[in-house]
């Protein structure tokens, strides 16, 4: 078969495709072009928090939307730097504070299922949740369930996730 001599280009293409083992070519090209680049959890968190912030304005009546809804989109790198710094600061504060064990937990609101990030169950996700989780990790006297990034352990990465969410949402609310 010589495609160059066939006057019908569509037929040429069909003949080439008929000869082609497309499955093998696709598989080898997919392996070749697979990037093995994965989005880190803080990138996911940043993107989804920004989207949630926007989509909440759809749920609310237009009259209740405020100018803070249309906040600028910060880079995930900027946000990650802030959250990492904040998480580190919280950890240091918890480790150094002699009073941290005396902080009373908030009373949970009845009949409201708290978000996983709402560690202190006060109905909102804010920097206090990161602080509380950091304290729980430091004390390690209880079985911790706040494995927010699903990596099999409750650690500083989970504190960072909460901090990320807290600094990403306008007003700090969930």
């Amino acid at each position: 078969m010589t495609p160059q001599t066939n006057p019908n280009p569509d037929q040429d293409l069909e003949q080439l495709l008929a000869e082609l083992d497309a499955q093998s070519l696709s598989a080898d090209l997919a392996k070749l072009t697979q990037s093995h680049i994965f989005a880190p959890p803080h990138v996911d968190t940043h993107i989804l928090a920004t989207a949630a912030d926007h989509l909440q304005t759809i749920q609310r009546p237009a009259s209740s939307a405020t100018s803070t809804d249309a906040h600028p989109i910060f880079s995930w790198k900027f946000s990650a730097a802030i959250s990492a710094a904040a998480a580190a600061a919280i950890t240091i504060l918890v480790l150094l504070s002699p009073f941290s064990n005396n902080i009373s937990p908030q009373i949970p609101v009845a009949n409201i299922q708290p978000l996983p990030e709402d560690i202190n169950e006060d109905g909102s996700v804010d920097i206090l949740d990161a602080f509380t989780l950091a304290r729980q990790i430091r004390n390690s006297t209880q079985s911790l369930t706040a494995d927010l990034n699903n990596d099999g352990s409750v650690d500083n990465a989970d504190v960072e996730l909460i901090t990320q969410r807290a600094v990403s949402l306008s007003g700090g609310g969930a």
């Binding site: 680049i37 989005a39 990138v43 940043h46 993107i47 920004t50 989207a51 989109i73 880079s75 995930w76």
Partner: peptide
């Protein structure tokens, strides 16, 4: 990763 963020924005 920047493109991922801006695409979904």
């Amino acid at each position: 990763l920047d493109t991922l963020q801006e695409t979904f924005a």
